[in-house]
Design a protein around this nucleic acid. Sequence first.
DNA 1: TTATTTAACTAACAACTGTTAGTTAGTAAG
DNA 2: CTTACTAACTAACAGTTGTTAGTTAAATAA
Lengths: 189, 189
Amino acid sequence: MKTETRKEEIIRVAAKLFKEKGYSAVTMRDIAKSMDIKAASLYNHINSKQDILEAIIISLAEQFTTEMLEIKKSEIGAIDKLKQIITLHVRLSSQNIYGMASLNNDWMHLEEQMSYYIKLRSDYENDFKHILEEGIRSGELIAVKPDVMMFSILTTLRSLYLWIPKKEDINLGELSENLSLILLNGINK
Amino acid sequence: MKTETRKEEIIRVAAKLFKEKGYSAVTMRDIAKSMDIKAASLYNHINSKQDILEAIIISLAEQFTTEMLEIKKSEIGAIDKLKQIITLHVRLSSQNIYGMASLNNDWMHLEEQMSYYIKLRSDYENDFKHILEEGIRSGELIAVKPDVMMFSILTTLRSLYLWIPKKEDINLGELSENLSLILLNGINK
DNA sequence: TTATTTAACTAACAACTGTTAGTTAGTAAG
DNA sequence: CTTACTAACTAACAGTTGTTAGTTAAATAA
């Protein structure tokens, strides 16, 4: 486990503050205060407030994209692909709760990287929808509108960051299984 | 249909901006510009920026509370209660998409009214959970942890505001039915 | 030892923030 | 006609914002 750089620490601390108050309401002085330094000192490590947001959001979005690619090309059925997607969200959300909050709530404050983020997200959603459509075609899933299905499942998964921290004792494997049960039995014919 | 007062117009316009950028990122000058007046003129109608946020969030939260009370005391089964809750969310969300965004994303910027809001929300969640527990006891629902069930359903319903506007042609009754099907068949034994 | 890098600091700036004070033109009520 | 109200305006203020410039002490490399 390699030790955290000062830059990584700033990003981690900032993400926590962004989750609590949102990007716009968090000042560079807030971030600095959380690290017991002055705001100007942050600029020895990062270029701008915007850079912090980009670091948080883009790296997470790229992780989702990379792993979706793996799931997509694996030779398994739609139900099993969906189970892997659920596990993916549980894992990334629990690893980076604060980052997931920014990903969900602060992406609209991206500047240069906004369009790149939107492309990653819409590619992800398209892959998701294709899995559902494929599952309907093969008879694995009921024939409800895939849009509504995807919305229902994906919003639940995207909100995991709000919910995981509340249960200290939670078992992540168990959570994935319970979620699969609840989310999929409404789809599984 | 009584005509909108200037104050109501400010609140409506502000809610739209709050949805796009979040409460903190929207300035009084932004709101004013959207109405083609100057920021200072807003203060002829409202007392503060904070008052606008309170008007948006509290009135919506109270509508949910009122209607949950009705559902709670009606003499129907858990499944039917859940269907009514789903319909309630679809209806209130479609009536006030921008307000729902603030309710979900900007409640943490409430000041005096924050604790009142939190009480309304946790009462609502408790009522919701009791309906689920009752349904499990009576055998209507499968015996999965009610916390996970509630999280899954409620986060989907709370995100409706993100999704409804995308489909202009959507039929709200049909949406409620599709959602009931998807959300409940994973629960319905 | 000397030179370089790292990471903190103080001080400041120009732009922007919510809000107030005081004013004014148009409309409605007496 | 006069009065009062509505709803806009200009000007301003005190505080906050992200960021830069220049400096300094400590740690590391030569």
